[in-house]
């Protein structure tokens, strides 16, 4: 009888990135190792402490102030500011904080928070400091260590989630909280080759459309 063994590991990244022609844009849902929510091992979440706020005073929805500092530092190492804007300039951590509130991404949120915790633990062990207090070189060393971990490890998975979500936050529609000032699109040249109607209209709310577009509540039948 067809049976999926160990859904968590079986739902590999390959399943997500398999090229579907005509989806030139790629139907790539977030990240790897997405398990079914009802099958996940429900470890009691560690108390993250009070939710914090960003340096610009934006209220956080997912991360504690402590977690946010680590996430912000890690994103900035994925896309550091140089002659072009970096992850922080684009408000990437704000994007990640908000998108992890999507109910359908609950498993991703759990994975991501475990990853942040693991990054902190490793940072303390190696450098006796929190991740956000490390030098950029030390942060890179730690991130490379996560990247180079065995393919199905939590560390490698977190590195991939971090990269993918940083790129989403840097290059996604600004209505999700990131890509502030469309700096990501400027870097990639998105829009430079396009013609009319390339970018979404002002006032577009992606998260709201994902929840509500095309839904027609109420009796379907006469």
């Amino acid at each position: 009888m067809p049976r999926a063994h160990s859904p968590r590991s079986r739902l590999s990244r390959r399943s997500f990135i398999q090229r579907l022609s005509f989806f030139g844009g790629g139907v790539v849902l977030l990240g790897s190792a997405c398990k079914r929510s009802e099958e996940k091992a429900k470890a009691p979440p560690a108390d993250p402490g009070p939710l914090g706020a960003t340096v610009n005073g934006q209220a956080l929805r997912t991360f504690s102030a402590f977690e946010y500092a680590a996430v912000a530092a890690a994103c900035e190492r994925i896309l550091p500011r140089d002659e072009d804007a970096g992850a922080l300039d684009a408000d990437v951590p704000v994007y990640i904080d908000r998108i992890l509130q999507t109910p359908a991404l609950e498993t991703i949120r759990d994975d991501f928070l475990s990853g942040v915790a693991a990054l902190e633990r490793r940072s303390q062990r190696m450098f006796q400091k929190g991740f956000s207090a490390l030098t950029p070189e030390q942060q890179d060393e730690l991130l490379a260590l996560f990247r180079d971990s065995p393919p199905k490890s939590g560390e490698a998975h977190f590195f991939e989630l971090l990269t993918v979500m940083t790129l989403e936050g840097y290059l996604g529609d600004p209505s999700y909280g990131g890509n502030k000032g469309k700096v990501g699109w400027k870097l990639m040249g998105f829009g430079a080759v396009g013609t009319v109607a390339m970018a979404p209209p002002e006032g577009h709310d992606g998260p709201k459309c994902l929840r509500e577009c095309g839904l027609h509540h109420g009796g379907a039948h006469k």
Binding site: F23, G25, G26, V28, D173, A197, M198, H204, C209, L210
Partner: peptide
């Protein structure tokens, strides 16, 4: 809408 996150 031309919103990659939404569509893709």
């Amino acid at each position: 809408i031309h919103d990659e996150i939404l569509n893709s």
